[in-house]
Design a binder for these strands. Sequence first.
RNA 1: GGUUCGGUAGCUCAGCUGGAUAGAGCGUCAUCCUUCUAAGAUGAGGGCCAUUGGUUCGAAUCCAAUCCGAAUCACCA
Length: 589
Amino acid sequence: MNLITNLKESTAASLQSLYQVTIQPDQVLVNATKPEFEGDYTIVLFAFVKQLGKSPDIVGNELGAAMQKALPGIITKYNIVKGFLNFTISNDYWLAYITNLKPNELIPAITKKRKIMVEYSSPNTNKPLHLGHLRNNFLGWSIAEILKLQGHEVVKTCIVNDRGIHICKSMIAWQLFANGATPSSTHKKGDHFVGDYYVKYNDAFKAEVAGLVSGGMSQELAEKEASIFKAAQEMLLKWEQGDTVTLDLWKKMNAWVYEGFDVTYKKIGSDFFKTYYESNTYLLGKELVEEGLAKKVFYQKEDSSVWIDLTADGLDEKIVRRKDGTSVYMTQDIGLAQLKQKEFNTDASIYVVGDEQNYHFKVLKLICQKLQQPAADGIYHLSYGMVELPTGKMKSREGTVVDADDLVDEMIAISKEKTETLGKVDDFTPTQLTELYNTIGLGALKFFLLRVDPKKKMIFNPEESIDFHGFTGPFIQYTHARIKSILRKTGTTVSLTPNELLPLEKQLAIELSSFPAVVNEAAENLDPSKIAIYTFNLAKLFNTFYAELSIANAESDVKKQLRIQLGILTAATIQKAMSVLGIAVPEQM
RNA sequence: GGUUCGGUAGCUCAGCUGGAUAGAGCGUCAUCCUUCUAAGAUGAGGGCCAUUGGUUCGAAUCCAAUCCGAAUCACCA
């Protein structure tokens, strides 16, 4: 059993037998003891003191003695300072812990396995991926891996927004301005090629509107009357009517985009078990509306449009079917939610979508619950904040975005440059070097985007390149490479039983022991940053350990073997933790 | 205006189910490579935790009000 859980339960049991009070183990607060006090773990006594009407010193002493008796061989001593009960855990406990821990069994299997869908990425086929998509992809992929590490079954999905007026805009612009150019004729990546025409559309549109406005038309009217906009609208209509010429163009241009996306996804390591296309799902939800009307969850207005009244839940009225009988975004999404649940029989469904859609998902979940859809309670919106530039928001139509491909390439180029300057990998083959540059460049980028709380918006300054020192991916990768370098020299065979433990060795053991709890926390909060922070702290601690104590030239063989074991476990924990962030750790760098 | 989310060091961020003297990284300054990889370590400096009031033995953390910022409140997706 986990030591902290053990301490909590033991505290509750001791309080019960000492004072006949019932306290839930969860209510016992166990902290790591602050370095300036003696001990390893601290129990805060104030909570019980009040209830018992005794002084903290008396409760502390009685509880401390009882705990020591209850956990023989684990608690060696205790002290009380101002209402804090500090326990010192025996070295033997930690030595046994280290000796018995297996590098491939760091995370205990959970008992309640669930089937969870994670939907992420959600690209539009009118533009290439940008920095915001990267945050989405890394978050989605990572949370899926964290849940898998815990033992859950995870289905990664992607919904591609491949239809609509915005797609028609780039199609129109291509017809008008491309002269039959293609990605291969211009040597451009397909998604970038198409994205350029989306920008061209907006330029032409703006110019046309400006012309109309200077001719005396109001801005609002000009935006509706611009011929290029009307052409896009007309195209959407043709698309919906199944016009073959339009559909062919649409298929052709989308194919270019997918070719480009594939390259990017492969590079950044995103993968999906199933991809849904909005062109296939946008009509979903029709029967659902009927069902909702029958269940009296929805109601119909005079103009025959269908609505749901959520005012009792503190929200608004929401339309679910237009008067012309077509379904809206919300209805499609409910339909898709139902489809996904049926297809995969999921217990829970996580949507990785930006926080501008918080309201949408709140409503989505509520409607699914009211319709009594299975697993409606298992809908979670992993809401993340925008990535902004120092100048403000990124806008695709204005071309002020940090492009995903460009950024990835730049990170890899920087890692190449730095690696060459340091000159530590002269024995690598060209293939190994390419792989290493990718590993480090992507590691820096992924760590940068995953180390902060997902729900907070973050600012990215393209002028300052992403760091390779300190709280970064490469720092952790470096620590791993360092450990592996030592282990290559010392070997990894451990046979002697250790018998003493220095403070730094103990600190490492304690840090290692908290990994499963960190994974749990990350999974419960859908927050990979918890793992990023933990891994950084572990690496930092190891580096201090490394600077203070020698492994290869330890004081004795027993010490050497103990430290080899600590090295093995630290490397394994770093590797595992980084792997769920999507970051590989090199053997040498 | 309603709802939701933010405001912590010069910058980027932890800490938020209340607990001991508020922590990292970057940047600045100073030390440490003839001993396991210096993408490292050690130290210094840097704070009215937005403001005010409340609850409490104890508040960055909880409550209320105020100020500042963002998102949303589409028959767009």
